[in-house]
């Protein structure tokens, strides 16, 4: 088998891998909005990942088994991607009016690293299918990989675990409340008026015990505030710490009261945004799966 046999399979593997990376870059526009140069970095790294995944197959065929060790290099390379994402987003977060929070950032960083491994897998499978079978098998493999990647990369949304209701915030004395959940103390009558004019309240009612624990996570709550603030704008500036969106918990039943100050008060849109907030991997808790909890339920 001459070297030329490998050219087309390699090209196809790299092309499919890069295409998958482009597709996955598109799906996360809300987390990583408009940084053109950031996109270029990820496309370049996706291309490299596709190359690495593709090269494995010819290496095996040529019996260059030691060549596989370069995958360890790839692993450390893509761990750096995670660090890079984390640092960038943390730096940027300091200057946001409503920050993402570290849990959200960590989730995004992990997703970026994971996506590169999916690209490696896709390229590997595609090239292998081409070399051992034929181009049609390769294309079918690519399509199957595409669906697998889509499945793996779409996590759960908030609407899966909570019921969301709009409730007008109100004051009892100086205390701001959403339903019966205490949010904060705002003393000045002028500020109170502003808060009532612009403020929106939401109650998230967890559907089960696991959901209760998951949405109590501070990082998850910050993610909700961030997503709403991005989608609807925020009535806030530096030097007005009183106008801060907050999410507080009802200790009795685990409901979360969300208080936000959007620039535009569109209830329907806000409900939709909250419903589509991703459930952060680091916030997910499933205590009902542990043994002790099972015993308790019995």
């Amino acid at each position: 088998m001459s070297d030329n046999h490998f050219i087309y399979p390699i090209l196809l593997g790299v092309a499919v891998g890069t295409a998958i990376r482009i597709y996955m870059l598109k799906t996360d526009y809300r987390q990583y909005p408009s940084y053109l140069h950031g996109k270029v970095i990820h496309l370049a790294l996706g291309f490299i990942a596709a190359g690495l995944g593709t090269i494995i197959v010819p290496a095996i065929i040529k019996e260059e088994y030691t060549a596989i060790t370069f995958l360890t290099l790839a692993a450390s390379q893509f761990r750096d991607v995670r660090n890079m994402e984390r640092t960038t987003l943390q730096q940027v977060d300091m200057y946001e009016l409503v920050g993402r929070g570290n849990t959200y950032i960590e989730g995004i960083a992990v997703a970026f690293e994971g996506r590169n491994y999916l690209v490696i897998l896709t390229s590997f499978v595609t090239t292998a299918a081409y070399l051992y079978l034929n181009i049609w098998a390769a294309l079918i493999a690519a399509i199957i990989c595409f669906f697998i990647c889509r499945k793996l990369m779409s996590g759960n949304r908030l609407k899966d675990i909570v019921e969301i209701n709009y409730i007008e915030p109100h004051f009892e004395g100086a205390g701001l409340y959403v339903d019966n959940i205490y949010i904060m103390n705002i003393g000045l009558p002028e500020r109170q008026k502003e808060v009532l004019k612009y403020g929106m309240g939401f109650i998230l009612k967890p559907k089960n015990f696991n959901a209760k624990i998951t949405i109590s996570n501070l990082g998850q709550r910050q993610a909700i505030l961030y997503d709403v603030s991005v989608a609807l704008g925020v009535y806030r500036d530096s030097g007005t710490p009183a106008l801060v969106p907050l999410a507080k918990r009802d200790l009795e039943d685990g409901r979360i009261g969300i208080f936000v100050l959007p620039q535009t008060k569109e209830i329907e849109k806000a409900l939709k945004v909250i419903a589509n907030v991703p459930i952060l991997e680091n916030a997910i808790r499933v205590p009902s799966r542990t043994l002790s909890q099972g015993k308790q339920e019995q």
């Binding site: 004395g173 100086a174 904060m184 103390n185 705002i186 003393g187 000045l188 500020r191 030097g239 007005t240 710490p241 009183a242």
Partner: peptide, 10 residues
């Protein structure tokens, strides 16, 4: 409140 960058509580 504005000068000290704090929140006024009653």
């Amino acid at each position: 409140e504005a000068i000290l960058d704090g929140i006024a509580h009653a």
